[in-house]
Design a binder for these strands. Structure first.
Length: 858
RNA sequence: GCGAGAGUGGCGGAAUUGGCAGACGCGCUGGACUUAGGAUCCAGUGGUAUGACCGUAGGGGUUCGACUCCCCUCUCUCGCACCA
């Protein structure tokens, strides 16, 4: 009988579905285990990244189930988003149709992989039954001031035709369109007040012991907490004042000028009527037109313009000039800085360029700096000078003293600053959750009454050829009467960032049909937090930060009693593959290469770098092709065997073949010896075993121990699989040794074979299920307990002792297991090979490591 | 520049409370079976001057003993970066 994965996998998938083996209910009598993989965007079909992510999860899920846990393992669809609209523009398909077609395709692919999802909990975020709750949460946030609207400079992506959050800008470009530079645009946008939770989210990082340090450090970095002071500088020409934020209040006496960010609203006020007003406005406009990457790049020179106005240094009372400068960031601190050219390199360069004055206020130890001779700023520690009553103090201790002084004089105060900005959630897009707000001509901004939810996204609209959202052009959507006064009103036509949907979907999985609110408290109490979350590192900031924020919002709205959603996080590595290039035709798809030549022009191909699989590099492998060639089990085995999950996986067609061969070996092992093995029960632990049988018995239990440890403690499936391979090799050796196969021998082989099946079943569920039934078992492996190992089976009667001379291995001896240290030493010193090495030399010392080695120092 | 992680055969990777470096797999070599072999099985496979030698990016150190701990250097990956 040949191994026919396609037929056999289909059969078991049908049976699992028929018997509803993946369904799960709340059961207070059982330990719950919430296993979650990041839900996919329904982009068309599954790619290898999905397959790897979901395979890792499925192994954990099946393993935990066999260990007796009540496992929640849901899946759904992150179904709003721009690609659906792009498809609509390109192919004229409506986003809804496109999305649901993709869901159908990908769902059947997931099923073909044999993943153990509870499909009854499936959700799609573009379904009004989902997003209506998101709108309700929005309204509650709005009422608490956690959602607010403001006019400000925002990041605009021309390709997306929409605004982006700060987190969605990478190197000055859009996170989706990595070659589309983001520009600044002044407009009204909705924000979530994530900054209110900055401190809490940052603090809680220390408690997330189940998260990779890498992710935590990225989050801490992103929040960017710093300690400093706000200092107020009075304007010279009016009663106004300018606030600056600094972490270096110790250098305040050396502040000889001030710089505004070009966006700062005060600039326009103070230059009004100045002779250089027009010129400055032109400079501001020119600077803001630059995309943020160019503006902040290393090669961009620091530039500024004098505003014609002065302010007063609050401690020296000197008049200092006010500049507008391109390098000052509007959205950090107060958007204005005090410049201390002697102790800040950027300020130094700026001062030199524009001939501004310098004053040293920190002298380094054993050196005296002079303004006229300085060639760069001194940013180190030292003693304060020219700093009034603070002269002579160390600059670090003066940090606090000066801040206290400012506070007592009413000139400023200590403060903590964060780099994190509020989350801009407005999107000028169609395929998203409508923001439930109405603008009334008389009442102003009015929230949609809760009983009117959901604000349904109309599905009968066509996206224009320029890609812009049809919502602002559709009177039947935006024309509405004010719910308060009944007068003329207009709906908000922005939709929400799709990251809002993914910030709470894992709560909805616990109660997908709950009708009385977004979250059923009973279900959430039972299932949350997520015990294991698995996904790509690319969400280290975006999705994971937003989810941590949203959890706190939901908590403070009274929906849950929880601070952190994800107890343990596993960030799996990327799936990579060699690129192949033709000098003529560029990157080539594997199908376009034959015998190392380009199929179009016969040119020899160049093998390029190993990079993340991507359509643009054409170094992709279609999971569908693999499944129909080898079956899902082979794909699963390879994904896990090739590397540990957190590392990148390098694709290897030959490695896949190897995994397929391994499953074939198991298949033959069982089918070839089925008669022998099925006529006896598995070894019951009774009876005297010969040394050979005891070795096999021991290997079986060692393997159970190792596989359990590798999965349970560290998710190292690659070593778990190799341990099973070793056991298979051992059984084959045993069977090939031509021994007489008595009942006892058969029962031990059966024990070993059953261990192979059980241990491998989370990884390759189909073939193992088939083998399990062949051995006469009636129930699914999913309902079979995970095997335990017997400690007495691990016992050995002889131990191998390594003998070293001066730390180098020179010999090995076997001693009875009962030997103690002294006996081992005596026995080792008798060893002939050792004696040869020692020769005439005198033994200085002998180190004995119990049960392991003897090191003789001569 | 700051922060995090990594560097082991031809390749993917094993080995971490310091104790036989290279498990397992791929590839390769030889053999068996065969009309055939790109199936299967068996044997071998870090280097080498074949030594009792060398070898875990390089250099130092601690130790009886270091892939593992400490110091320095190099390389690579990722994140942040004119953050005041």
């Amino acid at each position: 009988m040949l191994y026919n994965p396609l037929e056999l996998e289909k059969k078991w998938q049908r049976i699992w579905e028929r018997d509803e083996l993946f369904k799960v209910e709340e059961d207070p009598s059982k330990d719950k285990y919430y296993l979650l993989e990041m839900f996919p965007y329904p982009s068309g079909k599954l790619h290898m990244g999905h397959v790897r992510n979901y395979t890792i999860g499925d192994v954990v899920g099946r393993y935990k189930r066999m260990c007796g846990k009540n496992v929640l393992h849901p899946i759904g669809w992150d179904a709003f988003g721009l690609p659906a609209e792009n498809a609509a523009i390109d192919h004229g398909t409506h986003p809804e149709k496109w999305t649901y077609q993709n869901i159908e395709t990908m769902k059947s692919q997931l099923k073909r992989m044999g993943f153990s999802y509870d499909w009854d909990r499936e959700l799609a975020t573009c379904d009004p039954r989902y997003y209506r709750w998101e709108q309700l949460i929005f309204l509650k946030m709005f009422k608490k001031g956690l959602a607010y609207k403001k006019r400000t400079y925002v990041n605009w992506c021309e390709s997306c035709q929409t605004v982006l959050a700060k987190e969605q800008v990478e190197n000055g470009c859009c996170w989706r369109h990595t070659d589309q530079e983001v520009s600044l645009k002044e407009m009204d946008s909705w924000f979530f007040k994530i900054t209110d939770y900055a401190e809490e989210i940052l603090d809680a990082c220390d408690q997330l012991s189940g998260w990779p340090e890498r992710v935590l450090s990225m989050q801490r970095n992103w929040i960017g907490k710093s300690h400093g002071a706000i200092i107020r500088f009075p304007l010279d020409h009016s009663d106004g004042e300018v606030e600056v934020y600094t972490t270096r209040q110790d250098t305040l006496y050396g502040a000889t000028f001030m710089c505004f960010a070009p966006e700062h609203p005060m600039v326009k006020e103070i230059i009004k009527g100045q002779p250089q007003e027009a010129e400055i406005l032109e400079f501001i406009e020119r600077t803001l037109r630059l995309d943020s990457y160019v503006r902040t790049a290393d090669f961009t020179e620091k530039e500024g313009m004098f505003t014609g106005r002065y302010c007063l240094n609050p401690v020296t009372h000197e008049k200092i000039p006010i500049y507008v400068a391109n390098f000052v960031l509007f959205d950090y601190g107060t958007g204005a800085i005090m410049a201390v050219p002697t102790h800040d390199q950027r300020d130094f360069e700026f001062a030199k360029k524009y001939g501004l004055s310098l004053r040293v206020v920190i002298q380094p130890p054993g050196e005296t700096l002079k303004e006229e001779t300085m060639t760069e700023a001194y940013e180190g520690e030292g003693t304060l000078v020219h700093s009034g009553s603070f002269d002579g103090k160390g600059n670090l201790e003066a940090l606090d003293d000066i801040a206290d002084y400012l506070e007592s004089e009413g000139l400023g105060h200590k403060t903590v600053n964060y780099r994190l900005r509020d989350w801009n959630i407005s999107r000028q897009r169609y395929w998203g959750t409508p923001i439930p707000i109405i603008y009334c001509e008389t009442c102003g901004m009015v929230p949609v009454p809760e009983e009117d939810l959901p604000v349904v996204l109309p599905l009968d609209l066509k996206i224009g050829p320029n890609g812009a959202s049809p919502l602002p052009l559709e009177p039947s959507f935006y024309e509405i009467n004010c719910p308060k006064c009944g007068g003329n009103a207009r709906r908000e036509t922005d939709t929400m960032d799709t990251f809002v949907e993914s910030s709470w979907y894992f709560y909805r999985y616990t109660c997908p049909d709950y009708k009385d609110g977004p979250i059923n408290p009973k279900s959430v109490d039972y299932w949350m937090p997520v015990d294991q979350y698995i996904g790509g590192i690319e969400h280290a900031i975006l999705h994971l930060l937003y989810s941590r924020f949203y959890t706190r919002v939901l908590r403070d709205l009274g929906y849950l009693n929880l601070d952190e959603p994800f107890r343990n996080l596993l960030t799996q590595g990327m799936v990579c593959k060699e690129t192949q290039e033709c000098p003529e035709h560029g990157y080539l798809h594997p199908d376009e290469v034959k015998d190392q030549r380009c199929v179009h022009c016969q040119a020899e191909i160049i093998t390029g770098q190993t990079l993340k699989m991507s359509k643009s590099k054409k170094n992709v492998v279609d999971p569908e092709d693999l499944i129909s060639r080898y079956g899902a089990d082979t794909v699963r085995v390879f994904c896990l065997f090739a590397s540990p999950p957190e590392r990148d996986l390098e694709w290897s067609d030959q490695g896949v073949e190897g995994s397929y061969r391994f499953l074939n070996r198991i298949w033959r092992l069982i089918t070839d010896h089925l008669e022998d093995v099925s006529r006896v029960p598995s070894f019951d632990g009774k009876g005297d075993l010969s040394a050979l049988l005891r070795d096999l018995h021991r290997k079986t239990h060692q393997t159970i121990q190792k596989v359990t440890h590798d999965i349970e403690e560290r998710f190292h499936f690659n070593t778990a699989i190799s341990a099973v391979m070793e056991l298979v090799n051992e059984v084959n050796r045993f069977l090939g040794s031509g021994r007489d196969m008595g009942d006892l021998a058969c029962s031990l082989v059966r024990e070993a074979v059953e261990a192979v099946i059980l241990l491998l079943s989370p990884v390759a569920p189909h073939i193992t299920e088939e083998c399990w039934r062949m051995l006469g078992h009636g129930r699914s492996l999913m309902e079979t307990p995970w095997p335990g190992f017997q400690a007495d089976a691990l016992e050995v009667d002889k131990k191998l002792i390594v003998i070293q001379v001066n730390g180098k291995v020179r010999s090995r001896i076997e001693v009875p297991a009962s030997f103690d240290q002294k006996e081992i030493e005596t026995e080792a010193l008798k060893d002939e090979r050792l004696q040869d090495f020692i020769g005439e030399k005198t033994i200085k010392r002998v180190i004995v490591v119990k049960d392991k080695l003897v090191n003789v120092v001569v």
